[in-house]
Write a protein that binds this DNA or RNA. Structure first.
Length: 927
RNA sequence: GGGCUCAUAGCUCAACCGGUUAGAGCGCUGUCCUGAUAAGGCAGAGGUUCCUGGUUCAAGUCCAGGUGAGCCCA
């Protein structure tokens, strides 16, 4: 007889090979068809809310690994909270305005700003942004991310834009907004401001000059009667008319160096190089002073009737120049910031064409680069030029027209960070009102807030929301008026931000409007747009408040660590200023995706990993698992090796599910479940272990430590299930009569396991858990024969497994811990016996355990079960001094059906190849 | 250059307040099974805890410096 057919071997159509790319498509389809996300919303209505507010990714290009990671982490949080019973709607958003779209589009069109009208361009930009919103939406959905995808929030939607203007207006009303000068990169050929991304560095030849600035009260430094000069170095002589300070390093040493008939002040450490490079011949070093000591020293401008003084700054470097840095707040970033600190005016006597204005005196009308030689000549005549040569250096150029750029100060709109103690309040809120994960974020946020300058809100761009200000044509006054802003807000909310640029100014102004300063009647609209960071920064107003399913403040913002300066901060500042509290109760940050060496991804390094490729070759669940496998508080590595490992973990989980499904084919949960007291010891033990797993995994999810949860699940599947419990169970599952108590006891556990594990992994392995869930439902329908399953239609509609304290059994766990310890020793001895060719399969073995009485008792209690636990054919227990394990060949013959060795085999005439146990089973089977 | 941070087996992670011989899983090697089978079991080999110095009876853990890397700013 073919006894194999009398066994209850696993049966399932759940495939071992996942073939995720194809299968996931079907599951996505299932979710869509069954409207699972919508049904979650309906079923959670009225439950406590958990709001994760989506930081809008930029609608430009396909999604990259970082965005994929970010969205998956968000999805894991939302799904977990949902299964925990929260009403956790997720409304994804996109950042649609701004430079990257504008820049990319200009590139694509092959034109510049002057070759297209603003409105025409904006129309194209809109299409461009919306195109990528659509693309990215599909890519995110493909990752299995649940959310209100059909109606996301877009920063270019009229209602959002209206809120942006409203927020700007309110801040202005509360005097947070002012107008000031700030140097920006300027292309005088294109007559436009340029952003960092639009700058190309190219070699350029510039003059390199060393200039002497006469010191006024040199007596404080030296008793010498010789004239004393600060020696500065610059490659932009044309910025000298705007010189308002000399910066030196506070902690470096500066030398007074006597030349022929003069004394120069320069950094001591530069002296040797300068002797070499420009050939100065010092007679002697008069004295040496710490930079700090020279602070406040006054000097005369070399050709303008003006006095300024020496300031100290940490950015002063001794790598080049003289250590005395010519400072023109209107012509450089560092200069500007230093100037702000010392209340220097932002002098910038240069117009949009790059020509000097009347502020530059007799240089008026001369183009700045052409003025270089005139200025050098002037310095020479006055005797202030120490040295002059030419250098070739890397210099910023316009990406479009290729001309050299200049720094030029222009009027900009700012948000004052110190108004009404905003900065202090924000820092306090960071400290006391927000939960930062990981905790170091708190410090980082705090120190960034402490240091940040006022927020420049204006951009000289096309693609964004116009700043709702008007300028009086008569006196040039820039006006922000509550009434005007109210009107713009309404118009914009209805028609979108184009209306600001479309409508003539008269339509916007209230009838008979006059300039509050000069009474003028003619106005023009502000042309600048609002910084996109301001747009996304007010999403708490435009989204959290406006969307009735959400709420303000939110529970969590979850973004990459770059958002400490970005969204976390802009959102915090605007919320503090508008509402006096943060927009979030918690902030979670993750690191950046880097390669196997920990280096960032870049095209030039050739180490870029594409999420879409992972999805199409290995599946979204693999990507989701990868995102959950690593500790995201640090940088997250990805490589072929790591992906292979991820697939291995996935395989283990999948096969565990398959084994469970395969052994439950004839199990009807409602009919066959045994109550705990009727379960076998080992089964109750496993149930206790499962409760602990649920407890630990839940705790990990609560702490957002997904990698911990994954490790726990993987470890459980490997150590407790695959290598022990399942292995032991096989004999009972396969060889016991189908409806025997022993087998049903095992199956009861398997069912518990399957349902719990499937749920525990659902937030992460959403596709696979849904797939498993579907098989479970089908099984249930089949078993009950009623086409009805007690299981929810989707695992994501089900609830998180609860720990059943009644199933926890410390006593059992202690006993089994001992048994497992002994098992370890047995396995080692079995391996030795295998090596000595005494046995091959462990069932060929007979094991004798000699141990002290105290150790022996728990083993004895197991009785016949003990050999099952060791998967051997015979076990003998003996009392002895200390633990000893002996292995020999089992007696008797191998049962053809269960493969156990027994003396009974051969004794039965009817079933000569069976053991006693199988004989009974067979009778049940045939009878 | 400044702010914040990281570095533990080939990989992913552990190691409470400083306290025995730094632990797991995967991978690797060997091996068994062929009734989870493009599965599964067992055993074994892998570590100068990035480097240098210091504090301490004792350092992966604390301190200083260096190297490499990341985010942000300049």
């Amino acid at each position: 007889m073919e006894y194999r057919k009398t066994l209850n071997l696993p049966r399932t159509s759940f495939p071992m090979k996942a073939n995720l790319p194809q299968r996931e498509a079907q599951i996505l389809n299932f979710w869509e068809r069954k409207k699972v996300y919508q049904r979650i919303r309906e079923e959670r209505k009225g439950h406590p809310k958990y709001i994760l507010h989506d930081g809008p990714p930029y609608a430009n290009g396909n999604i990259h690994m970082g965005q994929a990671l970010n969205k998956v982490l968000k999805d894991v949080v939302v799904k977990y909270k949902t299964m925990q019973g929260f009403d956790s709607p997720y409304i994804p958003g996109w950042d649609c305005h701004g430079l990257p779209v504008e820049h990319q589009l200009f590139k694509k069109l092959g034109i510049n700003k002057n070759e297209i009208s603003r409105l025409e361009f904006r129309k194209k930009a809109r299409e461009y942004a919306l195109h990528f919103v659509k693309e990215q939406r599909n890519q995110f959905k493909r990752l299995g991310v649940f959310g209100r995808w059909e109606n996301p929030y877009l920063t270019l939607s009229p209602s959002y834009e209206g809120e942006v203007i409203g927020a700007f207006g309110k801040l202005a009303q509360r005097q947070y907004i002012y107008r000031g000068l700030k140097p920006i990169r300027w292309c005088f050929r294109c007559q436009t401001a340029l952003a960092e991304a639009e700058i190309e560095y190219k070699e350029k030849e510039s003059p390199s000059i060393y200039v002497k600035f006469p010191v006024k009260d040199s007596l404080s430094l030296t008793s010498s009667r010789l004239p004393v000069y600060l020696l500065i170095w610059t490659t932009t002589p044309w910025t000298l008319p705007a010189n308002l300070a000399v910066a030196i390093h506070p902690h470096h040493l500066y030398a007074l160096v006597q030349l022929d008939k003069e004394i120069l002040i320069l950094a001591k450490d530069r002296l040797a190089r300068l002797k070499e490079e420009i050939g100065i011949k010092p007679a002697r070093v008069v004295s040496v002073h710490e930079g700090e000591k020279l602070r406040g020293l006054r000097y005369k401008h070399p050709f303008i009737n003006r006095e300024s003084e020496v300031l100290t700054a940490n950015y002063v470097s001794l790598d080049e120049g003289t250590g005395c840095v010519h400072t023109a707040p209107g012509h450089g970033d560092e200069d500007y910031v230093l100037g702000l600190e010392h209340n220097l005016p932002v002098l910038s006597p240069v117009d949009g064409e790059g020509k000097f204005t009347s502020q530059a005196g007799d240089l008026k009308g001369i183009q700045v680069f052409e003025a270089n030689s005139l200025i050098i000549e002037k310095l020479k005549q006055k005797g202030y030029l120490l040295h002059h040569e030419k250098v070739v250096h890397s210099y910023p150029h316009c990406w479009r027209c290729g001309s050299a750029l200049i720094y030029r100060a222009t009027p900009q709109w700012f948000l004052v960070v110190d108004k009404h103690n905003l900065r202090e309040k924000a820092i306090k809120a960071v400290k006391n009102e927000v939960d930062w994960i990981p905790p170091v974020s708190k410090m980082r946020m705090g120190s960034m807030l402490r240091e940040r300058p006022d927020w420049c809100l204006s951009r000289q761009r096309y693609w964004g929301v116009g700043i709702p200000a008007v300028h009086c044509q008569g006196c040039g006054e820039a006006i922000i008026d509550e009434e005007i802003i109210g009107k713009i807000k309404n118009l914009t909310s209805k028609y979108g931000s184009d209306c600001w640029f479309e409508e003539p100014v008269e339509h916007i102004l209230p009838p008979g409007y006059r300039c509050p300063r000069c009474g003028g009647e003619k106005f023009k609209k502000e042309e600048d747009i609002i910084d996109v960071w301001f747009e996304s920064g007010v999403s708490h107003q435009a989204v959290l408040v406006q969307e009735e399913t959400l709420g303000d403040p939110s529970d969590l913002y979850l973004e990459g660590s770059d958002q400490h300066r970005g969204w976390f901060q802009t959102s915090l500042l605007t919320s503090m200023a508008l509402k006096g509290r943060p927009p979030y109760r918690g902030v979670l940050t993750h690191g950046f995706v880097v390669d196997s060496e920990g280096r960032k991804m870049s095209k030039s390094l050739g180490n870029v990993v594409d999420p879409q490729e992972i999805v199409s070759t290995r599946g979204a669940d693999v990507l989701r698992l990868w995102a959950s496998l690593e500790d995201y508080t640090q940088d997250i590595r990805i490589s072929e090796e790591i992906l292979k490992y991820t697939v291995e973990v996935y395989r283990r989980v999948r096969n565990t599910c398959r084994f469970l499904l395969g052994n439950l084919y004839d199990f009807d949960y409602l009919r066959d479940t045994l109550p705990p007291e009727e379960l076998q010891d080992i089964d109750r033990w496993l149930l206790s272990r499962l409760q602990k797993l649920i407890k630990k995994v839940t705790a990990s999810f609560e702490k957002f430590k997904f990698h911990e949860a994954v490790h726990l699940l993987h470890l459980f599947a490997t150590n407790e299930l695959s290598s022990f419990y399942f292995d032991v169970l096989k004999d009972r599952l396969y060889t016991f009569p189908p409806d025997s108590k022993g087998r049903k006891s095992a199956q009861t556990i398997l069912w518990h396991l399957l349902i719990s594990l499937t749920k525990l992994m659902a937030p992460i392995l959403s596709f696979t858990s849904e797939e498993v869930w579907g098989y479970m439902r089908k099984m249930e329908e089949g078993a009950s024969g009623e086409g009805y399953s007690p299981l929810e239609e989707s695992v994501l509609l089900s609830s998180w497994p609860q720990v059943d304290n009644n199933l926890l059994n410390e006593n059992l766990e202690t006993i089994w811990k001992k048994v497992l310890k002994v098992r370890e020793g047995v396995l080692k001895k079995l391996e030795e016996a295998r090596g000595a060719e005494i046995i091959r399969s462990s069932l060929e073995a007979r094991v004798t355990i000699i141990a002290p009485f105290s150790e022996l008792s728990s083993l004895k209690d197991l009785g016949d079960r003990l050999k099952e636990v060791f998967i051997i054919s015979e076990v003998q227990l003996q009392e002895g001094e200390e633990l000893e394990i002996r292995v020999s060949r089992a007696e008797g013959r191998k049962c053809e059906r269960c493969w156990n060795y027994s003396l009974y085999v051969g004794s039965d005439k009817e079933y000569p190849t069976l053991c006693q146990r199988c004989r009974k089973a067979i009778e049940e089977f045939t009878g």
